[in-house]
Amino acid sequence: MPESSALTLDSVSVLLVWTAIAVYALAFIAYAVDLARRGAVAVDAKDAAAQAVRARELALAGGGRGSESIDAVRAQEKKSEAALNAPIGSRERLVWARIGTSLTVLAFLFHLGGDVTRGIAAGRVPWSNMYEFALTGTLLVVAVYLGVLFRYDLRFLGTFITGLVVMLLGGTAIWFYTEIVPLMDPLKSVWLVIHVFVASLATALFALAFGLSVLQLMQARRERKTLALARATAEGADAAALASARKTGPGFLKTLPGTDALESLAYRFAILGFIFWTFTLIAGSIWANDAWGRYWGFDTKEVWTFVIWVLYAGYIHARATRGWRGSRSAWLSIIGFTAVIFNFTIVNMFFKGLHAYSGLS
C-alpha cells in the first residue's frame, strides 16, 4: 500500500483494485451457486432411484438397458454442445450465472480503473514490475473470458476464472505491491509496451485452455463411470455394485459439453496463445539485442520463456500429428500453464538475472 496519507492516484488505484477483488469474490460465489444448482437439477434423487429400479428390471428381462444409457449420455452431450454455441439471446436463463457474469463485468470495470490510474500515476504503461504485470495480466484474463462469452457460452468456467483472479490479484496486492519508481534503462523501450502486453495476452488464452483442460479430465472420468454404470446395469449387477458405479462425480458435469468439445475448445485457445507466445519470444530477443547487445544469453527468464514455448509446441504437435487426444493432451495443456505460473512466480522471486524487474526487495 502507498505509505503517504494523501489520496494520490496510486492510492486510488489500490482502492479500485481491492474493490475489484471484493466484487470478483462475489462473482465467484454466484458462479459457484450456479454450478451447485446445475448439479441439483441434473441429479434428482427420486428420478435416479426410479431409473435404477427400471434399469434393473430391464436388465433382468434382457432389455438392453446398457445401450439405452449410452444413448442418453450421447443425447445429453449433443444438447450441451448446442448450448455451448448458442447465441447470447437464445441461451438458457441461468439466474446465478447471469448474476456472476454481471458482477464479473462490474469487477472488471473497477479492475480496469485501477490499472489505468496506476499507469497515469506512473506516467507509463502499467506493467513494468511484478505487481503491475499481475494487475494487467489478470485484467486480460477477465477481458478475454468476457469477450469469448459473446461467441461461446462458457459461463461454467466463471468459477475458475474469478477464483483464479481473486487468488492472483489478491496475493499480488498483499505480497507484491511496490511503490512507483522510475524505469530502469533497459525498460525504457517501445518493446516494453509490445512484448509484455502480448505475453500477458498469451497468458490469458493459456489460462482459458487450462480451465477447459481441467474440466475435460473431470468430464472424461464421469463419462468412463457412466459407461461403467451402463454395463453394470445391463449385466444385472447387485445393488452395492450399482451404487458404487453410480458415483460419477459432481452433478454439474452432466450439464457441460462432452470431452471432445472441451478438448477442441481448449486446443483452439492454446493455439492462439501459442501464436502470441511465439511473438513474445521473438520480440524479447530483439529487445534483448537492443538492451544488452545479444539476442540470447541463457538468462533464467529467457530459458523459461523458451521452455513454455516448447511445452505448448509439443502439445500442439502431439495432438495434431501424433494423435495425442483425450487425457494425454489435457495433461500437456495443464503442464504448460503450470510452467507459465512457475515462470511468473518462482522465477521472478527466487532466480536472479538480467530480467530481475519484479520490484521486490
Results as ranks from 00 to 15, higher is better:
residue 8 T to C: 09
residue 185 D to Y: 01
residue 214 V to Y: 08
residue 273 G to L: 07
residue 128 S to E: 02
residue 217 L to R: 02
residue 361 S to L: 12
residue 255 T to G: 02
residue 342 F to P: 07
residue 57 E to A: 15
residue 111 H to T: 09
residue 202 A to T: 11
residue 75 A to Y: 00
residue 282 I to N: 05
residue 167 M to V: 13
residue 202 A to Q: 11
residue 12 V to I: 15
residue 201 L to R: 08
residue 7 L to T: 07
residue 179 E to Q: 14
residue 251 G to N: 10
residue 66 G to W: 10
residue 78 K to V: 02
residue 340 V to C: 05
residue 92 E to L: 10
residue 33 V to A: 06
residue 144 V to D: 09
residue 224 R to H: 09
residue 322 R to N: 13
residue 218 M to R: 12
residue 171 G to P: 00
residue 353 G to M: 07
residue 277 W to T: 03
residue 333 S to G: 11
residue 351 F to Q: 14
residue 254 K to W: 05
residue 81 E to P: 00
residue 154 L to F: 03
residue 166 V to K: 12
residue 270 A to W: 10
residue 121 A to S: 13
residue 23 V to M: 06
residue 51 Q to F: 11
residue 243 A to Q: 06
residue 269 F to I: 05
residue 70 I to S: 07
residue 70 I to T: 09
residue 164 L to G: 06
residue 236 G to W: 08
residue 58 L to C: 06
residue 126 P to S: 11
residue 163 G to H: 07
residue 209 A to M: 09
residue 344 F to N: 10
residue 337 F to N: 03
residue 235 E to W: 05
residue 286 I to Q: 09
residue 273 G to I: 03
residue 9 L to F: 03
residue 179 E to A: 15
residue 250 P to L: 10
residue 122 A to T: 03
residue 52 A to Q: 14
residue 73 V to M: 11
residue 313 A to R: 07
residue 314 G to K: 07
residue 208 L to A: 12
residue 336 G to C: 12
residue 315 Y to A: 05
residue 355 H to R: 14
residue 292 W to N: 04
residue 295 Y to M: 13
residue 225 K to Q: 07
residue 16 L to P: 00
residue 40 A to E: 09
residue 158 G to H: 03
residue 136 T to S: 15
residue 269 F to R: 01
residue 172 T to H: 08
residue 218 M to Q: 11
residue 293 G to I: 06
residue 43 V to C: 09
residue 160 F to D: 01
residue 30 A to N: 01
residue 147 G to Y: 12
residue 229 L to N: 10
residue 229 L to S: 06
residue 321 T to Y: 14
residue 176 F to S: 13
residue 111 H to F: 10
residue 305 T to G: 09
residue 165 V to K: 09
residue 155 R to T: 13
residue 62 G to D: 12
residue 251 G to V: 10
residue 229 L to V: 04
residue 212 L to S: 05
residue 7 L to R: 13
residue 67 S to E: 15
residue 45 A to W: 00
residue 102 S to C: 12
residue 359 G to R: 13
residue 178 T to N: 08
residue 261 A to E: 13
residue 100 G to F: 00
residue 171 G to R: 13
residue 179 E to L: 14
residue 16 L to A: 02
residue 289 N to P: 00
residue 306 F to N: 10
residue 58 L to F: 10
residue 54 R to A: 11
residue 119 G to N: 09
residue 71 D to R: 12
residue 163 G to Y: 08
residue 353 G to P: 01
residue 215 L to D: 00
residue 345 T to E: 06
residue 78 K to I: 01
residue 288 A to T: 08
residue 326 G to T: 04
residue 345 T to P: 00
residue 124 R to F: 00
residue 256 L to G: 04
residue 206 F to N: 03
residue 246 R to K: 11
residue 37 R to E: 06
residue 68 E to V: 03
residue 1 M to P: 01
residue 118 R to D: 03
residue 142 V to Q: 13
residue 188 K to L: 11
residue 170 G to F: 03
residue 15 L to V: 11
residue 213 S to N: 03
residue 163 G to D: 06
residue 223 E to Q: 12
residue 93 R to K: 15
residue 202 A to M: 08
residue 155 R to A: 13
residue 18 W to C: 09
residue 338 T to C: 15
